[in-house]
Nucleic acid binder design. Structure first.
Lengths: 345, 345
DNA sequence: ATGAAAGCGCTAACAA
DNA sequence: TTGTTAGCGCTTTCAT
C-alpha cells in the first residue's frame, strides 16, 4: 500500500516472502496447484500480494505467453443503438470468459479499419470480431498473416466465418407489415406510393433488403419504380437530401417509407422536422433497425430488431471452435410493432 | 509477406538488412534522426519492414517503456446516446494524439468499476477517463497507487479533476421551458401538475437537477409536492413503475414531466405505450439528455443536450496539464426544442 | 553513424 | 515442493 510511485512486481513479493519469483508467479497466476506449491505457501504469497496492492503486469504476461487476453472488436460507430447493443453483448460474452474486451469504432472508413486492426494486432489481441466492416476480407488478410482468429458480424466476408441477420426474411416481413399499415392509415388506394431510403446499394445487407422490398412490392403491388429507391449512403445527411428529393418527386409525403437503418432514419427525420405536423397523418414507416424512441413517434413506425444476443453468442461459439471455414450463419430478427417497447437489453 | 505463423520482429529485419537490432528499432520507431542514423539506412530498413509486413509488438514496447500508449475510459453503459457520444468524442481525441482508446462499460456497478479499472491498470494504460462512475474517489485511490492520471466526467469526484455539465443551469432552463410548454399545451391552469422522474437522489447530477426543478417550480408555481418527485434509480424498469405510480396518483397523465435522462425516459415510455393515444394530448415532457428520435414524438419533448465535444476536449487538456488539483469544470448544455434535429455528432 | 548488451515483468522448462 | 534460468520483443544507455 505504501508503494506510491512504482507498481509492485513478483520480485517485490518474492523478497517479501522469501519465495522465488517463479513460485510467486505460480501462486499469483493460479497455476500453483498444478505446480504442487504447498497450499500454505501459496496462501501466504497471495496474502502478501494483496497487502501490497499487487496486480500483474499484463503486458509482461502477454509478451511472455504471446497472447494478451484481449479480444478486439471493431464497429462502424458507437452512436447507434444496434451497434452499441452489439458492444454490450460483446462485453458480456468476453467478461464471462475472463477476457478483456477492446472495442474501437472505425467510422465506415476502410483505411481507418485497416489502421485500427493493425493497432489491435500490435497489442496482440487473441481474436477479432469485425462488425459491419466495409471490407471484411481485407481484414482477413491482415489477421491471417499473424494467425489471429476472426469472425465477421452484420456484414459477411468470404475469408472468415460470418454471423449476420437474415436480412431478406426480415425485410420481407417488414415490407409486408408496412403495406398493411399503409392500407390502414394511408390514402386508401392500392397505388399509395412506398419508398425506400438508406444504405449502400453495394453492401450485402442493403442488397438483400432491397431485394425483399422489391419482391414483396411485386407480389402485392405489381412492382415499384426504380426511382422510389434511394440507397447511396449510411450517412444521415445523405438521407436528409433523399427525403427531400422524395417529397419533391411525390409532391408531399408518401404513404409508406422503408427506412434502411436508424442512421438513415435520423437523416430523414431531420428533413421531416421542417414539415407541418398535419402532413404526417397518412404516413407509415418501416425501419430496419430498432430504437426504443423511434417506436413512439407521431406516426406509425414498424421496426425490425436484430437478435443481437444470439448473434454474439453464436460468434463466440464459432470463435471457440477455431473460426475455420468462412461459412455464413443467419439469425432471424424480430418485428416490433409501433408503440411497443420491449424489455431493454 | 510469406511469414504465416509468426509475427516479424526487429530481429528478422535486422538479419534481412544486416543492420543491428538497435538500428532497426530506431529506424522503425521514428527516433532515427536523433540517433543520427544515415537516412539511406533508415529508408532501406523501413522498406524491408514494409515488404515483410512488420508491425511493432506494442506489448513489448509498452513493457520496456513502462507506458503502453493505451488510454482507458469507463462508461456506465454503451446503449445510451449520451455515453456513446462521449465514446465517440473520446476516440477522436485519443486518435488525434496517436493513442489507442480502450472503452469499457461498467454497468453502474461499483464492483465492476473496480475490477475493470484494475484490469486497465494491469494493461498499463497511460491515463484514465472515468465517466459517470458511482464512486470516482475509489477509482482515484486505485489510480494514485500506480501514478495513473485520472479525469472524471459527468459525475464529479473529490480526488481528481472533473468535467461536468452545469446541471443546475441546464435543469433550470429545461424546467422553465417545460412550464412554458405546459402553459401552452396543458390544461391551462396554473396548477397543472408537473412531475420529476429518474436518477439517483444521492448522485450529484440528480441532486442539482432536482434542486433546479424545485427552485423554478417555487418561483413560478409556489412549489412542488415532494411526492411529485421520483428519483430512485437509473434503471428504466424503475421508471416504468414510477410512471405508473404517478398516473395512479394523478388519475391520468400529468401536464408536465421532467424526465431525468433517456434511461428514465425509456422506462416511462414503456408504461406510456400501454395508454391510449388521446391521453397524450396535453402532456409536455422535458428530458435531461438528448436523443434524436425522442425529439420527434407525438407530444412535445424538450431536451437538453450536453456539450460532449467540449467536455471531452477540456478533459484531455486537463489530462495533458498533469491532472493535478481536483477542481470541477462545468460546461453549459444546450436546449433543444421539440421536433428539432441538430446536426449529428 | 552504428553495434552490443542489459533489462522491462512475467512464465515455463529444467534442475534440484 | 521449490529455485534457477532463459527469453518473449523492444528501447536505451554506453561503447566504438
Amino acid at each position: 500500500m505504501e508503494n506510491i510511485s512504482k507498481k509492485t512486481t513478483i520480485y517485490d513479493i518474492s523478497k517479501l516472502t522469501g519465495a522465488s519469483p517463479s513460485t510467486v508467479s505460480a501462486a499469483l497466476s493460479g497455476t500453483w496447484r498444478s505446480r504442487r506449491i504447498k497450499e500454505a505457501t501459496a496462501l501466504k504469497i497471495q496474502q502478501v500480494a494483496r497487502e501490497n496492492g499487487y496486480t500483474p503486469n499484463l503486458q509482461a504476461r502477454g509478451l511472455r505467453k504471446a497472447r494478451s487476453g484481449l479480444v478486439g472488436m471493431i464497429v462502424p460507430a458507437h452512436t447507434n443503438r444496434y451497434f452499441s447493443t452489439l458492444s454490450n453483448a460483446f462485453e458480456a460474452e468476453a467478461r464471462a470468459r475472463g477476457l478483456c474486451p477492446v472495442i474501437v469504432s472505425t467510422l465506415r472508413d476502410p483505411e481507418e479499419e485497416r489502421r485500427t486492426v493493425e493497432t489491435l494486432i500490435s497489442y496482440a489481441i487473441d481474436s477479432l470480431f469485425v462488425v459491419g466492416a466495409t471490407n471484411p476480407d481485407a481484414i482477413s488478410d491482415l489477421c491471417a498473416s499473424v494467425n489471429i482468429k476472426q469472425v465477421n458480424l452484420d456484414l459477411p466476408g468470404t475469408k472468415a466465418p460470418s454471423v449476420i441477420t437474415d436480412d431478406y426474411w426480415g425485410a420481407r416481413i417488414l415490407t409486408q407489415e408496412l403495406l398493411r399499415s399503409v392500407k390502414k392509415h394511408g390514402g386508401g388506394g392500392e397505388d399509395d406510393p412506398v419508398y425506400f431510403i438508406g444504405g449502400f446499394q453495394s453492401d450485402y445487407a442493403t442488397d438483400q433488403r432491397i431485394k425483399a422490398f422489391k419482391d414483396v412490392m411485386k407480389e402485392e403491388r405489381g412492382g415499384v419504380p426504380d426511382n422510389h429507391i434511394f440507397a447511396n449512403s449510411y450517412d444521415p445527411n445523405a438521407s436528409t437530401l433523399d427525403a427531400e428529393t422524395m417529397c419533391k418527386l411525390e409532391g408531399g409525403l408518401p404513404s409508406g417509407l422503408f427506412v434502411n437503418s436508424t442512421f438513415a432514419f435520423e437523416g430523414v427525420l431531420r428533413y421531416f422536422s421542417k414539415l407541418p405536423r398535419e402532413d404526417f397523418s397518412k404516413i407509415s414507416v418501416g425501419c430496419y433497425d430498432y430504437d426504443p424512441f423511434a417506436s413512439f413517434m407521431h406516426f406509425p413506425v414498424i421496426m425490425v430488431r436484430q437478435n443481437v444476443q444470439e448473434m454474439m453468442k453464436e460468434a463466440f461459439i464459432i470463435m471457440e471452435n477455431g473460426a475455420l471455414e468462412p461459412k455464413v450463419t443467419e439469425i432471424k430478427p424480430t418485428l416490433i410493432q409501433p408503440r411497443t417497447m420491449p424489455e431493454a437489453r
